[in-house]
C-alpha cells in the first residue's frame, strides 16, 4: 500500500515498516488469532531448533531397541521422566520423533501449500482475467487433475518415480494446485467485472498491472483461509500415505503420521491401541494443535488484510 510514495529508499522502507506494524497491531487485537499465531510460532521454533537441541540425525527417530540388555522397549513404554511422551512399538522415542517430525511436516506442508497457492494464483488469475481459449485450456487441464482421486495420484507418483522426500513433495503439489486455481479463477471472474478494474483499464494500465494491482489483491483473501486449512490437510494426507505404506524411507522417518502408523501397524488391534493410547494420541495431538492454530491464524490474517474489516 505504500508504493510510489517516498522519495528515498529509506523512506520507502520506513513507511513499509510502519504499515506492517499497523497490520500487526490490528492482528493482535484479536485474542484468538494471537493465540493461533503464538502456537504456530512455537511450532516453527521447535521445527528449527528442536532437532538441533536433541542432537543425532534429524531425519531419523531415535530407537531404543535394548535397554540394559533387555528388549523391553519393543512394547510401548508409558510417559516417564526419561521418555516424556513415552515410546511406541519397536522402541522409538515419541518425544524425539514428534520434535523431529515438526521440522519434516512443517517444511513439506509449507512448500506444498505455498507453491500450490502460487501456481493456483498465477494460473487462476490468468484464466479468469483473460478468459477465452487461454482460460478454457487452463481450466480443462485443472479439471483433468481434479478428476483423478488425489490419493491415487500421489501413490502413482511415489511408486512410478521413487519413494523419496522430493517426489513426495512434488506429488503433493500436483494434488494441491488445481483447487487453488479454481478458487482464484472464481474470485477473479467476479472481481474483474467491478468498475475499478475498468477504471484501471481506462487509465491505460496494462493487463499485467491490472492483475497485480487490482485483481489479485482483491481475489486472494479466500486463499489465506484455504492455505491455513490445507496446511493441516497436507499433513493428514502425508500421514495417510505413510499409513498406506507408500511414505518415503522407512519406519524411522520422523513424521507425525508415520508415528501413528507405527502404532497401528504393530499393535494387535484396537484393544492394544487403547491400552497404549499415548502412541496414537500424542502425535495426533501434535497435528491437531497445529492445524487448529493455523486455522485461527488464517482467520485473523484474512481479517487484517481486508481494510474494510480493520476499522
Amino acid at each position: 500500500m505504500t508504493q510510489n510514495v517516498g522519495s528515498t529508499m529509506s523512506r520507502a522502507i520506513r513507511s513499509r515498516y510502519q504499515s506492517f506494524a499497523k497490520t500487526f497491531y490490528f492482528f493482535t487485537r484479536s485474542p484468538i488469532a494471537t493465540i493461533g499465531l503464538v502456537v504456530v510460532v512455537f511450532y516453527v521454533l521447535v521445527a528449527i531448533f528442536g532437532p538441533i537441541a536433541l542432537g543425532g540425525n534429524p531425519w531419523r527417530m531415535t530407537q531404543f531397541l535394548s535397554y540394559r540388555g533387555q528388549y523391553i522397549y519393543n512394547t510401548p513404554q508409558p510417559p516417564s521422566l526419561s521418555f516424556p511422551f513415552g515410546t511406541t512399538f519397536e522402541g522409538y522415542d515419541i518425544f524425539n520423533g514428534v520434535v523431529k517430525a515438526a521440522r519434516v511436516d512443517i517444511m513439506v506442508a509449507a512448500i506444498v501449500v505455498l507453491s500450490g497457492a502460487l501456481i493456483g494464483t498465477i494460473l487462476g488469475s490468468i484464466a479468469g482475467y483473460k478468459g477465452g481459449l487461454t482460460g478454457d485450456v487452463i481450466m480443462r487441464i485443472t479439471d483433468i487433475f481434479l478428476s483423478i482421486p488425489s490419493l491415487v495420484l500421489a501413490i502413482a507418483f511415489l511408486v512410478i518415480f521413487s519413494r523419496t522426500l522430493n517426489v513426495m513433495v512434488l506429488a503433493l503439489i500436483v494434488i494441491w494446485w488445481p483447487t487453488y486455481t479454481r478458487i482464484v479463477r472464481g474470485q477473479v471472474l467476479s472481481v474483474r467485472e467491478l468498475k475499478y478494474v475498468e477504471a484501471s483499464v481506462a487509465a491505460g494500465a496494462s493487463s499485467l498491472r491490472t492483475i497485480i494491482r487490482h485483481i489479485i489483491p482483491n481475489s486472494i483473501y479466500p486463499i489465506f483461509v484455504q492455505v491455513s486449512l490445507d496446511f493441516g490437510n497436507v499433513i493428514l494426507t502425508m500421514a495417510a500415505l505413510f499409513f498406506l505404506g507408500v511414505g518415503f524411507a522407512g519406519y524411522w522417518t520422523p513424521e507425525w503420521g508415520n508415528i501413528i502408523s507405527i502404532a497401528t501397524t504393530f499393535s494387535s488391534g484396537i484393544p492394544a491401541i487403547t491400552h497404549y493410547w499415548w502412541t496414537v494420541v500424542i502425535p495426533a495431538l501434535a497435528i491437531l494443535i497445529l492445524v487448529v492454530s493455523l486455522n485461527l491464524m488464517g482467520d485473523g490474517l484474512r481479517d487484517v488484510t481486508d481494510p474494510r474489516l480493520r476499522r
Binding site: Q3, N4, V5, S200, A205, H214, R308
Partner: peptide, 13 residues
C-alpha cells in the same frame, strides 16, 4: 478499489 488508499487510487492514472 477497496484495498487501496485514496492516494494510490488517484495516483494510478
Amino acid at each position: 478499489d477497496p484495498r487501496m488508499l485514496i492516494k494510490d487510487v488517484i495516483a494510478e492514472p
